[in-house]
Nucleic acid binder design. Structure first.
Lengths: 126, 126
DNA sequence: CTGCATCCTCAACGATACTG
DNA sequence: CAGTATCGTTGAGGATGCAG
């Protein structure tokens, strides 16, 4: 592995994966993607009802970020009271299979990982 | 998608993916995994030489976390000065293909994503 | 209904110094 | 060589109130 590649990986601005992981790696993005995949089209408050524990602010921030990356399409209906719908773009659809492979791996190994963590705690505690 | 599943996904403690993403989603973990995959076995300072921009503390923290999750094996050679070697476990090997599929997707779409972000900035700026 | 503005907290990250 | 200890910074995330 030459230094040129490493420099790219060390630099968040230049590294493609870090660029993507910095987004889906945060607290809510993945969850929003999975809910939208399941439900196809949802309004702001509908999304909020699905993910009750998210704050209004973070839902707003998360959706904006997804929209900026072209992963979510936002449709405004000019009426009062306003109606806004969110749905996944094709780009998001092409990303989801890879997400799911990671989700599946996590499900398959989470018990082993938690066991490892517990054991590691015991070993290092004293 | 029923509420039971959603509750699990909303709760970091219970959600498998969030458990895993919270680790590999941080600043350095992914990079360490990729370097170790390439180089097989490395000592602490060798790793540091590959990833020059990481601080000693964060390299230490990252390795500890990976070791706790059973993704990295740490071997101490009882000698002076000390010699410690790090290498990936089989669990990490089984995870890496999924990481790579995400890396590849990121490489394929990063230009489009950056273009979207730029365009989004322009549209929302005014 | 769909947000934005503001203020606040806490944990990740970093810089530096020190140690077995 | 391979870390730990300590302190300081910074930004993600959260609570609350207000607005079109």
């Amino acid at each position: 592995m030459d230094q040129e590649i490493l420099k790219k990986y060390s630099n968040v601005e230049e590294c493609p994966v870090r660029n993507v992981l910095d987004r889906i790696g945060n607290k809510w993005t993945l969850l929003v993607l999975l809910v939208l995949e399941e439900e196809k089209v949802l309004r702001f408050n509908e999304l909020h009802n699905y993910i009750v524990t998210i704050s209004q602010k973070m839902l707003s921030v998360t959706l904006k970020s997804l929209e900026a990356d072209g992963l979510v399409k936002r449709t405004i209906y000019p009426q009062v009271p306003p109606k806004v719908e969110y749905e996944l773009t094709e780009r998001a659809q092409s990303l989801l299979p890879h997400i799911h492979s990671l989700v599946d791996w996590s499900k398959d190994h989470i018990n082993d990982i938690k066991a490892s963590r517990k054991n590691y705690e015991l070993v290092t505690k004293k």
